[in-house]
């Protein structure tokens, strides 16, 4: 029973991070720096929200409390959301958006690599499909970090500022969460130590090519997305996203 709950909790973390990233990408609609980027951003968003649905469907089955995937997405409060802090940060300029995606992708990819071999077939299935998408996401966001880092003086300055602003949130990509560590031991979840190592290596490599200075490792601080301790930005995002299902609680759309 407890493992069942732990697993549901883990799935919500995966789903929430994917959904919130997708929601932030929706905000770019009609505002991207080039038309080609509109398509690219929307593609990533479609992949991620599709993945979120996959995780929520399974979480809903495990929770078995009458809620479905939509209820999990649209009817939970911000304290119940389990996404990484990095993904809820406002889009800012394209440097911030790019870097947010990159930090997330560099965590997401090794996570899915492991999950695609999960001892749980259902998880392995969702992750297997998501892995192909995440490989492309990572490639794309890495290239953009390199372009902006090693582009013009202005782009270098902007993405350096973005690193400065966002770096503290990367603690969540490298810390070892006890619940995930436990689940990983049984082969259900991704091993946080492996993910952390991969994340650091990938980020270091791309930063070098992007001529960006790699900061000292981030340190833990008060907030913790996995525990539902979010920045104030998440509540605003959810208020907008959840507006209709909350205004009309019993409605079908």
């Amino acid at each position: 029973m407890s493992q069942r709950n732990d697993l549901a909790e883990y799935l919500l973390r995966l789903g929430d991070s994917a959904l919130v990233t997708g929601q932030r990408l929706c905000e770019w609609c009609g505002r991207a720096p080039a038309l080609e980027e509109e398509l690219a951003l929307m593609n990533v968003g479609l992949d991620l929200i599709g993945q979120a649905r996959g995780w929520y469907d399974y979480a809903a089955e495990l929770l078995d409390d009458g809620r479905n995937a939509d209820a999990l997405a649209f009817k939970r409060e911000e304290r119940d959301f389990r996404n990484l802090l990095i993904v809820e940060q406002p889009n800012g300029d394209y440097a911030i958006t790019t870097l947010k995606l990159f930090f997330y992708d560099a965590w997401h990819l090794p996570t899915l690599e492991q999950l695609s071999e999960s001892s749980d077939e259902r998880i392995a299935g969702v992750a297997g499909k998501a892995l192909k998408e995440a490989r492309y996401h990572f490639k794309r966001s890495s290239e953009w970090v390199i372009r902006l880092g090693d582009g013009t003086d202005e782009s270098h300055r902007r993405i350096s500022d973005a690193v400065d602003r966002l770096w503290r949130y990367t603690i969540e990509m490298v810390n070892i969460d006890p619940l995930e560590q436990e689940l990983a031991k049984t082969g259900l979840a991704a091993d946080p130590a492996f993910v952390a190592e991969q994340w650091q290596a990938r980020v270091a490599k791309v930063f070098e090519e992007a001529t960006l200075k790699l900061p000292e490792p981030a340190v833990p601080f008060y907030l913790n997305g996995r525990q539902g301790l979010h920045t104030e930005h998440l509540g605003q995002l959810l208020a907008e996203m959840q507006f209709l299902p909350r205004a009309y609680p019993d409605a079908t759309w």
């Binding site: 080039a34 038309l35 080609e36 398509l39 690219a40 593609n43 794309r140 290239e143 372009r147």
Partner: peptide, 20 residues
């Protein structure tokens, strides 16, 4: 056709545009 800064980006833009 697509617009891109370099060939690699052109491939990705083409992927997103013509193989959706």
């Amino acid at each position: 056709s697509v617009h891109a800064a370099d060939a690699e980006m052109a491939l990705e833009n083409a992927r997103d545009l013509y193989t959706r």
